[in-house]
């Protein structure tokens, strides 16, 4: 093949494009960072953990949520659409009666709430729920 400048440029950009698709890491979100810090990079599978949250929040300032993961050592709760995703981490002690916790959280807007459980066997489980956060009528 005659390597004209055009050919070389074409081959070069093609190679570059391939490298981008294959090798370059995707831009990680804050939520992904928080999860990675919690899991140390170990893969997370769905299931084995329950997350209860309302479909529509009466008011984003106080949203009741509950998490449950039998066999978990700790459970981390994240609000993926909040300025900072971390919400709380429940660490269960030797006298914990169950691997469950309930609390009330603030959600800045409609978003996915995510719960990640660290299990006794070192694996990680994930559950998510979409919560709609609305604006009241009179700005209230």
């Amino acid at each position: 093949m005659d390597f004209t400048r055009r050919n070389i440029l074409a081959i070069g950009s093609g190679a570059f494009a391939v490298a981008s698709v294959a090798g370059m890491p995707a831009f990680a979100s804050k939520t992904d960072d928080a999860i990675a810090a919690f899991t140390g990079g170990v893969g997370v599978t769905e299931g084995g953990i329950d997350l209860t949250a309302p479909e529509i929040a009466e008011n984003g300032n106080t949203v009741p949520v509950a998490v449950s993961a039998p066999g978990a050592v700790s459970i981390m709760l994240l609000a993926t659409g909040n300025p900072t995703p971390a919400v709380a981490t429940f660490n269960f002690g030797s006298l914990a009666g169950s691997r469950r916790g309930s609390t009330r959280i603030r959600l800045a807007k409609t978003q996915d709430v995510v719960a990640i459980a660290k299990m006794e066997d070192g694996t990680f489980r994930r559950a998510g729920a979409t919560v709609k956060v609305t604006i009241g009528g009179c700005g209230g």
Partner: peptide
């Protein structure tokens, strides 16, 4: 009726003082 996403009440005051989720 719904006003945006708020369910309009009759504005009764039988529950006051009220704990509002909005300002906790």
């Amino acid at each position: 009726v719904m006003i945006r996403a708020d369910h309009l009440s009759q504005g009764q005051i039988n529950g006051f003082p009220a704990y509002r989720l909005k300002n906790a």
